[in-house]
Design a protein around this nucleic acid. Structure first.
Length: 208
DNA sequence: TAGGCCATCTGGTCCT
DNA sequence: AGGACCAGATGGCCTA
């Protein structure tokens, strides 16, 4: 499928998942959530210089401690933030918990903001998971690269419209598609995904 | 190199 | 008040 063109050598194993269109979307979502949770838990000892949760496993040597961020990082504003879930962590220990309390008392807004950021990331992950699931349900060419979000939506709309027409026609789906391939698909509801795009994709479906 | 796509952060708004 | 949702801004990556 689309992964044929993907350069596996250029990516680490974690990011490979995000481009593997055929994998179980639930597994992928769980994997990303695990990564997210790892990012959160890693903050108890050290913070990535970037807020992107994917960076830590890729560049572990680039991780900075709270002390690093407090003293020298240009990302001081970000570095001072603490995940609220960690602030409430019952098993907090020693030096770091003291840092958390200090940061919490000095930057309550930033703690809230960071918690909101994490919620937003989770929300976007769930949306992306849904997109991944949708990609598995729209017709694609075996050699086609991964559909973008907007193309996924547009193709899904066109696909639904065509399926509705097939239902309304009462014809055999395969012959309907074959007819469309021969004569051109006449649906006007989707100008974006033209007839050849959609019907050619459908021709790859095994109808029996 | 420009443009497309994407993830993330952020502040605003709405809802519970 | 806090969380969900949304849209704008930003920067990174990839491809033509």
């Amino acid at each position: 499928m689309e992964d044929i063109f993907f350069d596996f050598d250029a990516q680490d194993a974690a990011t490979d998942f995000a481009f593997w269109g055929q994998m179980d979307p639930n597994f992928q979502f769980q994997s990303q959530l695990d990564t997210l949770l790892f990012d959160c838990s890693a903050m108890t000892g050290q913070m990535s210089p970037w807020s992107s949760f994917g960076c830590q496993s890729v560049f572990p040597e680039a991780q900075l401690t709270f002390t690093d961020l407090d003293s020298q990082s240009p990302l001081l504003e970000v570095g001072a933030e603490v995940d609220s879930s960690l602030v409430n962590e019952p098993h907090e220990t020693g030096q770091h918990s003291q840092q958390q309390r200090r940061l919490t008392s000095h930057h309550p807004h930033k703690v809230q903001r960071h918690a909101a950021n994490i919620r937003e990331r989770k929300r976007m992950l769930s949306i992306n998971s849904a997109f991944e699931e949708l990609r598995c349900h729209v017709p694609t060419f075996p050699y086609e690269k991964r559909l973008s979000k907007i193309d996924t939506l547009r193709l899904a709309i066109a696909y639904i419209a065509l399926l509705r027409e097939i239902l309304m026609s009462g014809c055999d789906p395969k012959s309907y598609v074959d007819e469309c391939m021969k004569n051109g698909y006449k649906n006007q509801t989707s100008a974006i995904w033209n007839t050849s795009d959609l019907t050619a994709r459908l021709s790859w479906i095994k109808w029996d």
